[in-house]
């Protein structure tokens, strides 16, 4: 497959998996926690590297998932000790991220990770980093990682769709009918962590936040059905990745940055023109009403 095709496929897969997981984050008001986790997985990856001395994707996934969950646990602990949630998130992620950055700079010589890469990703090099598994032809490592995470996420969402739905909508009721609300919460946090780390090589830690939140936010303004929201969000994720790539090659700039920007542009369009919840559609009837009253 051509170089370009690989980038488009990998970007789209990141778009789908982030878009779907992101919807639940938005509905559960956990966007900032996702932002926090996307920063702190850096620490997980550095630790995984320092302990295993390899850039093996599996170790990185495990390290990232562990630190991601740790972030969620720390935030929960601080929050339940009486600190407001936004501040708990702020303290935890800046601290863990700072430790990650310090470790990278101290071990800079033997870590093949540099901070810029971690933040912005290097999707442009991803198609060259191939691995061979069994009888399959050599495939890009990022593709294999994203494919496995996408499958894991989709399976979890399909299996626990109604549990995710009810714990997001009405956690008290969910607890009352015996759904393990906390377990579902950490399951989602685990999904965010592995999603982040799988997208990490390609789009970087911070821009993955744009891919997680923006498509879902756009979809949220377009529909009143959860299933449709998930679908739309995935579609927006793909569009942003594809258009973002072409925009980046046209203006010769960071691919992941352009994908994030494109997500922002899609949101802006929806924000303005959504038929039911957009700014303009809200304005127009008001204007008409004013005109009628004026007459």
């Amino acid at each position: 497959m051509s170089y370009e095709a690989w980038i488009l496929i990998i970007g789209s897969m990141a778009g789908i998996t982030c878009g779907v997981v992101g919807c639940f984050l938005i509905l559960r008001k956990l966007s900032m926690l996702a932002d926090a986790i996307s920063h702190t997985v850096l620490l997980g990856i550095v630790l995984a590297f320092l302990i295993s001395q390899s850039m093996n994707g599996l170790y990185m996934l495990i390290g990232a998932a562990a630190v991601g969950l740790l972030t969620a646990v720390f935030v929960q602990l601080l929050h339940s000790s009486g600190i407001q949630e936004d501040a708990s998130i702020g303290v935890v992620f800046t601290f863990l991220f700072a430790i990650g950055v310090i470790l990278i700079t101290i071990f800079a010589d033997n870590v093949h990770l540099d901070v810029d890469h971690a933040l912005m990703g290097e999707i442009a090099f991803v198609p060259f980093d191939l691995v061979q598994i069994g009888f399959l032809p050599p495939l890009p490592k990022a593709f294999l990682m994203l494919a496995s995470v996408l499958i894991i996420n989709l399976v979890i969402i399909v299996l626990f769709y109604k549990e995710f739905k009810i714990t997001s909508f009405d956690p008290q009721m969910a607890a009352a009918i015996g759904i393990p609300v906390l377990l579902i919460h950490y399951l989602l946090m685990g999904m965010v962590s592995i999603t982040t780390v799988a997208s990490f090589d390609s789009v970087g830690a911070i821009l993955v936040v744009a891919m997680l939140i923006a498509p879902g936010a756009s979809a949220y303004l377009l529909t009143n059905k959860l299933s449709v929201m998930l679908l739309l969000s995935a579609v927006f994720g793909v569009i942003a990745a594809v258009v973002g790539y072409y925009a980046a090659s046209y203006i010769d700039a960071s691919i992941s940055g352009c994908m994030a920007m494109m997500n922002g542009i899609i949101f802006l369009l929806v924000f303005l023109f959504s038929p039911s919840k957009g700014i303009l559609s809200k304005r127009l009837p008001q204007k008409k009403l004013h005109e009628q009253i004026g007459k």
Binding site: L25, I26, K29, L30, S31, M32, A34, D35, D86, L119, M120, I206, L207, V209, A210, L212, I213, A214, G216, A217, Y220, L221, A248, I251, A253, S254, S256, G257, C258, M259, A260, M261, N263, G264, F267, F271, K277, I279, K282
Partner: peptide
């Protein structure tokens, strides 16, 4: 002006502006 809650709005703006910054 929308049903989007503050945390999501913060995240959205943060990441999109940062992405734009990276492009620049």
């Amino acid at each position: 002006s929308t049903i989007i809650k503050e945390d999501t709005a913060i995240c959205l703006i943060l990441s999109v502006f940062f992405g734009f910054g990276i492009v620049l």
